Computed example of a mutant assay.
Amino acid sequence: MINVLFVCLGNICRSPMAEAVFRDLLKNENLADKIKVDSAATSSWHIGSPPHEGTLAILQNYNISAEGLVGRKLTKSDFDQFDYIVGMDESNLRNIGEITGKANHAKFIRLLDLTEHKKDVPDPWYTGDFQETYDLITDGCQSLLKKIRSEQNL
């Protein structure tokens, strides 16, 4: 089993959106039995909380399930449990390194570095633009799946 973890600051906007989008991609590609997906926060602000209403609305608009999405904090042990740890922005990557004690590890990826965008996924908590975040995350998730398929011979 290949394990993928999406990480953002609060685990209520970007990372649960990425988890849901990636799960949907896996379901459509018949890979859900080969790749496990989760999401986490680098902060403890929203532990146990459901995704932001904007995230839930955009997922519903695209008929993507939000089932089981609950905020949790990244732990040091996540480093050992996940093959790909995907941050939404540079700050997330720094925080992932601090929390896991493994700065700049090869399994850490900034999602949009896999795309032509090569930038941070904007946080819709601040921008209010959940559509832009969804579009960028969808592009990033498609690129991530392509990378995983290539690296894992799927």
Results as ranks from 00 to 15, higher is better:
residue 33 D to C: 11
residue 99 I to Q: 01
residue 4 V to D: 06
residue 146 K to N: 15
residue 48 G to F: 07
residue 88 M to L: 15
residue 126 Y to S: 05
residue 103 A to W: 11
residue 107 K to W: 00
residue 93 L to F: 04
residue 34 K to E: 14
residue 20 A to I: 02
residue 125 W to I: 11
residue 71 G to C: 04
residue 16 P to Y: 01
residue 112 L to R: 06
residue 41 A to L: 04
residue 8 C to T: 04
residue 90 E to R: 13
residue 68 G to V: 02
residue 8 C to D: 03
residue 74 L to H: 00
residue 78 D to K: 03
residue 2 I to Y: 11
residue 124 P to T: 08
residue 38 D to A: 15
residue 102 K to W: 06
residue 9 L to Q: 12
residue 78 D to C: 07
residue 48 G to R: 04
residue 48 G to M: 09
residue 5 L to W: 02
residue 38 D to T: 09
residue 137 I to T: 04
residue 11 N to H: 09
residue 84 Y to S: 08
residue 62 Y to R: 04
residue 48 G to Q: 04
residue 96 I to E: 05
residue 97 G to A: 02
residue 78 D to I: 02
residue 99 I to A: 04
residue 80 D to A: 13
residue 95 N to T: 08
residue 145 L to W: 07
residue 13 C to W: 01
residue 42 T to K: 07
residue 13 C to V: 10
residue 108 F to A: 00
residue 104 N to K: 14
residue 150 S to C: 08
residue 138 T to K: 14
residue 26 L to R: 07
residue 96 I to D: 01
residue 89 D to H: 09
residue 125 W to S: 05
residue 10 G to K: 05
residue 13 C to N: 10
residue 53 E to I: 12
residue 70 V to R: 05
residue 87 G to C: 06
residue 8 C to N: 09
residue 35 I to K: 07
residue 31 L to V: 14
residue 44 S to D: 15
residue 98 E to Q: 13
residue 30 N to P: 07
residue 72 R to E: 00
residue 15 S to P: 12
residue 82 F to M: 11
residue 120 D to V: 06
residue 8 C to G: 07
residue 150 S to N: 12
residue 80 D to R: 06
residue 58 I to F: 03
residue 13 C to I: 08
residue 106 A to W: 08
residue 114 L to K: 08
residue 140 G to D: 03
residue 88 M to F: 10
residue 81 Q to G: 12
residue 150 S to H: 12
residue 122 P to E: 02
residue 10 G to M: 05
residue 17 M to W: 02
residue 33 D to T: 14
residue 121 V to R: 06
residue 109 I to V: 12
residue 150 S to E: 14
residue 129 D to T: 11
residue 99 I to F: 06
residue 82 F to G: 08
residue 76 K to S: 07
residue 25 L to G: 09
residue 29 E to C: 12
residue 50 P to I: 13
residue 60 Q to P: 00
residue 67 E to K: 13
residue 52 H to N: 15
residue 129 D to V: 08
residue 39 S to K: 09
residue 15 S to L: 06
residue 90 E to N: 11
residue 15 S to R: 03
residue 86 V to T: 08
residue 107 K to G: 01
residue 41 A to C: 04
residue 126 Y to L: 03
residue 145 L to C: 05
residue 81 Q to S: 15
residue 116 E to N: 12
residue 21 V to N: 07
residue 41 A to F: 01
residue 103 A to I: 13
residue 88 M to Y: 09
residue 147 K to R: 14
residue 150 S to T: 13
residue 132 E to Q: 15
residue 47 I to R: 02
residue 19 E to P: 11
residue 104 N to L: 14
residue 76 K to P: 01
residue 154 L to Q: 06
residue 141 C to N: 10
residue 131 Q to K: 15
residue 114 L to T: 04
residue 28 N to K: 15
residue 85 I to T: 02
residue 126 Y to R: 01
residue 116 E to L: 11
